[in-house]
């Protein structure tokens, strides 16, 4: 597999978290986030809160937000689908302005899914009427800011679907 510069850099994510005064990253590791994890542990302005099931992310973020902190949620699409009722009750129902960065496992630009995690992800998000933005590379990372702005404006969770891994190179 050839690699070249480009793709979606984990440092880009860190920059947006810092620019938006994020205090806590509520997350569950997945196959796509290890590069980002390494950087987050080196960023003193971020406190990592590791959960063991994705539904906990929404109630944890709700408590942090009610207390005046600014969390983001970092999970994979598989875990998001597990978390429907928690997202409904603890984030949407509690009017929590939280950005959730969701690893889009199985996503391909050409649309031929070989992974049902990708097949159902957007259908799931549509069912909850949650706004979302797709980010594939640093070139469209400004959508992360759009998501932060919309979450604040609406007091609702907004998703950023990460269509590539957080590593900063392109896999061919």
């Amino acid at each position: 597999m050839a690699e070249e510069e480009g793709g979606f850099s984990p440092q880009t994510v860190i920059n947006y978290l810092k620019a938006n005064n994020v205090t806590h990253v509520v997350w569950l590791p997945d196959s796509e986030t290890n590069f980002l994890y390494t950087l987050m542990t080196q960023e003193p302005s971020l406190e990592l809160v590791t959960i063991s099931r994705e539904g906990q992310a929404f109630s944890t973020a709700a408590g942090l937000s009610v207390g005046g902190a600014k969390p983001v949620i970092l999970i994979q699409n598989t875990g998001l689908m597990e978390s429907g009722d928690s997202m409904r009750g603890w984030a949407m129902g509690m009017n929590i302005p939280v950005v959730m960065m969701v690893g889009y496992r199985g996503w391909t630009r050409h649309g031929v899914d070989t992974d049902t995690a990708a097949t159902y992800t957007e259908h799931f998000i549509h069912a909850f009427n949650v706004k979302y933005y797709l980010v594939e590379s640093d070139a469209d990372a400004d959508r992360i800011q759009v998501a932060f702005d919309l979450a604040e404006k609406t007091n609702q969770p907004v998703a950023v679907l990460i269509g590539d891994e957080f590593h900063g190179f392109v896999q061919r």
């Binding site: 205090t23 009610v66 207390g67 005046g68």
Partner: peptide
């Protein structure tokens, strides 16, 4: 988790 988050924030 909610109460824990609140305690962390405050």
């Amino acid at each position: 988790s909610f109460s824990f988050g609140l305690a962390m924030a405050r």
